[in-house]
C-alpha cells in the first residue's frame, strides 16, 4: 500500500505530476478545444467532475468486484464501460434538472468519454495502489491540474493569434511547442512534493 497522505497526492497531481504536462493524457481534446478560454473552462469543469466521480466508482468496482472474483484482466473493458455509462447518466441527469447547465456543458460531456485522462486516472490509481481517500485526492487533483493546463494554453493561444508564426507551424505544431514550454515551467515545481 502506498503511504503518502491524500492531500500530498492532491497537490502533487496538480503541480508536480500534472496529468497532462507530465503524463500526456487527454491531449486530443486539449489541442482541439483550447481555442478559447471560455470553452476550455467549460470542458475543464466537466473533466474535474467526471474524473473525481469515475475514480471513486472504479475504485469500488475494482476492489469489491474485480479482485474478489479474480477478473482483474477485464479491468480495461469494465473501466471504460463505467466511464461511458457514468457520462451518459450525468448527461441525462443534467438535462432533466438543470437545462441551463446542460447547454453550458452539454457538448463537452460526450467528449469526455474519449478523453484518455479519465481512463488514465483510473489506471494510475490501480497501478500506484492508492487507498480510497488517496484516490479521491488524486482524482480531484488530476482533474484540476488538467483544467489548469487547458485554460493556460487557451490563454496563450488567444494571444498567439497576433504573432507571426512560420506558415508550416501554424495551428497544432506551434501549440505543441508552446505546451512544451508550459511543461518546462511546471517542472519548476518539481522539488515541492514528489509522488513516484
Amino acid at each position: 500500500m502506498n503511504e503518502t497522505a491524500a492531500w500530498v497526492i492532491f497537490i502533487a497531481a496538480i503541480f508536480t505530476n500534472n496529468i497532462l504536462l507530465t503524463n500526456f493524457l487527454g491531449m486530443c481534446s486539449f489541442i482541439a478545444c483550447s481555442g478559447q478560454i471560455k470553452t476550455s473552462l467549460g470542458l475543464g469543469t466537466a473533466v474535474i467532475f467526471v474524473m473525481i466521480m469515475t475514480t471513486m466508482i472504479n475504485f469500488v468496482v475494482y476492489h469489491f468486484v474485480l479482485v474478489p472474483y479474480s477478473l482483474v484482466h477485464l479491468q480495461y473493458i469494465v473501466f471504460i464501460a463505467v466511464i461511458a455509462a457514468f457520462v451518459q447518466l450525468v448527461e441525462m441527469f443534467v438535462e432533466r434538472f438543470s437545462p441551463k447547465l446542460y447547454f453550458a456543458l452539454g457538448i463537452f460531456l460526450p467528449l469526455i468519454t474519449v478523453n484518455c485522462a479519465i481512463l488514465g486516472a483510473s489506471l494510475f490509481m490501480i497501478i500506484r495502489e492508492y487507498s480510497f481517500m488517496q484516490s479521491v485526492g488524486f482524482g480531484l487533483g488530476a482533474g484540476i491540474g488538467w483544467a489548469v493546463a487547458i485554460v493556460l494554453l487557451a490563454g496563450l493561444r488567444q494571444k498567439m493569434r497576433y504573432s507571426h508564426v512560420p506558415k508550416c507551424f501554424e495551428g497544432v505544431a506551434i501549440a505543441m511547442v508552446v505546451t512544451g514550454v508550459l511543461a518546462m515551467t511546471f517542472m519548476g515545481f518539481a522539488g515541492m512534493v514528489a509522488i513516484q
Binding site: 504536462l21 507530465t22 500526456f24 507551424f169 497544432v172 505544431a173 506551434i174 501549440a175 505543441m176 511547442v177 505546451t179 512544451g180 514550454v181 511543461a183 518546462m184 517542472m187
Partner: peptide, 12 residues
C-alpha cells in the same frame, strides 16, 4: 516531458 512536446511539434 517537455522534450516530447517539442519533438512532436517540430515533426508536425
Amino acid at each position: 516531458a517537455p522534450g516530447a512536446f517539442f519533438a512532436l511539434g517540430i515533426v508536425i
